[in-house]
Design a protein around this nucleic acid. Structure first.
Lengths: 110, 110
DNA sequence: AAATGATATATCAAAAACGGATATAAAGGA
DNA sequence: TCCTTTATATCCGTTTTTGATATATCATTT
């Protein structure tokens, strides 16, 4: 079911959701976390959220904690999820560095 | 034509293409630049490239340099494009910082 | 001169990702 | 009781991405 090359590079919403799940959180808490953490700049709606949760579960990057209450399903990143997040942070760091480097080079010239 | 909220947050390929166009480059050179700069990790194919070029042109973030040779249309980021790129670098920096911060906090606890 | 590989631009059609709207339901406060 | 917040979930349209394909030129090799 929809496996494959996806999740090689994480998109912004996937990245945020994985970050949120370094600590165990349930769906609604993830939405709030991202909204707060970004000062409302980045919002994840329910459609995006639950779509991505399913995908992350399928990829084994997060897992649902077996809980009694079905009204508050709690998820958390697996070891593989943490590793993936670390890699993604590095990948994004390189992108930012490239951007800064190129912009700085332009600044020096002009 | 397909304007709107898009390009608020830049996706990875859009980000790379804008970075490439801080210096004037033609399409094919953009593809090569990204491939080289990422050690082949991130590849942009012609479909993605020319689709995004059109969108960036429409948004006024890049412009085509009026040249005689139609076989090497050169593009470059406009002032607005540079500003946008600077903003995006900052936005992405904050995302990376959040990721590092959260991972580090986890590391301390465990 | 013909062939080949690299350069270069472009589009189609399909897949993948995203997100607004909507539905449902329970809990808590006015 | 009514309203707001919490909470999960999906429908379905839009946007984004991309593999495949087409075309053409240039440089190098055979």
């Amino acid at each position: 079911m929809a496996k494959g090359k996806s999740l090689e590079e994480l998109t912004d919403p996937v990245f945020y959701i994985l970050i949120a799940l370094v600590e165990p959180r349930h769906g609604y808490a993830i939405m709030q976390y991202v909204k707060e953490e970004t000062q409302g700049t980045f919002k994840i709606g329910p459609a995006t959220l639950y779509t991505i949760i399913k995908k992350l579960l399928g990829a084994g990057l997060i897992e649902a904690e077996p809980e009694s209450d079905p009204r508050r399903k709690t998820y958390a990143a697996t070891a593989a999820g943490i590793t993936k997040l670390e890699e993604e942070v590095e990948r994004r760091k390189r992108m930012v560095d490239l951007g800064m480097c190129v912009l700085q080079a332009k600044g020096r010239k002009k």
